[in-house]
Amino acid sequence: MMHQLYPQVMHPYRYELNKDMHIAAAHFIPHEAAGSCANVHGHTYIVNVTIAGDELDESGFLVNFQTIKQLVHGKLDHTLLNDHSDWFDGHDPNRFPTTEVVARTIYETIQRYLDTLPHKPTCLQVFVRETPTSYVVYRPKAGER
């Protein structure tokens, strides 16, 4: 069981949902400046997605936790991140599978899904812990939501 505190986002919404996931995945950073991270290696990532909104859907959910898990864990768990060419690219540094890009891409994927919902919840942040001492938080800039 995960018991973790995450950076909080102040917001005006009535509801805030947080979904935690463990994702076991390998990756490599295709750049000489990555040092040993240019070699294939793995992590057990801890991911937290924060979603907020004012209205619940017809089933009483802001968003179904299972759907969020399927969008992220269902795609990435026990895979080589570099193989997901729809998410990552070995030529564009803005799409290398770094922790920063993983967090941003999870946000973009979740937000695309949320945009299809009639009650329009919003993804406030994605937290990705790569190691016990290193993590990234991705938040869209004001006005980008």
Rank of each mutant, 00 (worst) to 15 (best):
P7F: 03
H41Q: 10
N94A: 14
N94Y: 05
E144M: 09
Q111S: 04
I110G: 00
F96T: 02
N82Q: 10
V47Q: 05
V9G: 00
T44M: 03
E58F: 03
V102R: 00
E144K: 11
T105R: 13
V72D: 04
P121Q: 07
Y15D: 12
P118H: 09
P97H: 05
V9D: 15
M2R: 15
K69R: 13
V137D: 07
Y15I: 10
G60Q: 07
W87H: 05
L117G: 02
L5C: 05
H27R: 15
E130R: 01
G143Y: 03
Y107T: 00
V136T: 15
V101I: 14
H91Y: 08
R95A: 11
Q8N: 13
A24C: 14
D86P: 03
E144S: 08
R129W: 01
Q4S: 11
P93E: 11
P93K: 11
I110L: 03
L56D: 06
R139N: 07
I51G: 02
V128R: 02
E32Q: 14
F28C: 14
T44A: 05
F61M: 12
M1A: 13
M2N: 15
G42L: 08
Y113T: 03
Y107G: 00
H91C: 11
Y135D: 12
G53W: 02
R95W: 00
V40L: 15
H41W: 10
Q4N: 14
L5E: 15
Y107H: 12
E58A: 13
N18K: 14
D83G: 06
R95I: 01
K19A: 03
G60S: 08
S85P: 01
R139P: 01
D77G: 07
T79C: 11
A142M: 08
I68E: 05
F28N: 14
S85E: 13
Y113E: 07
G35D: 09
T109P: 00
T131L: 04
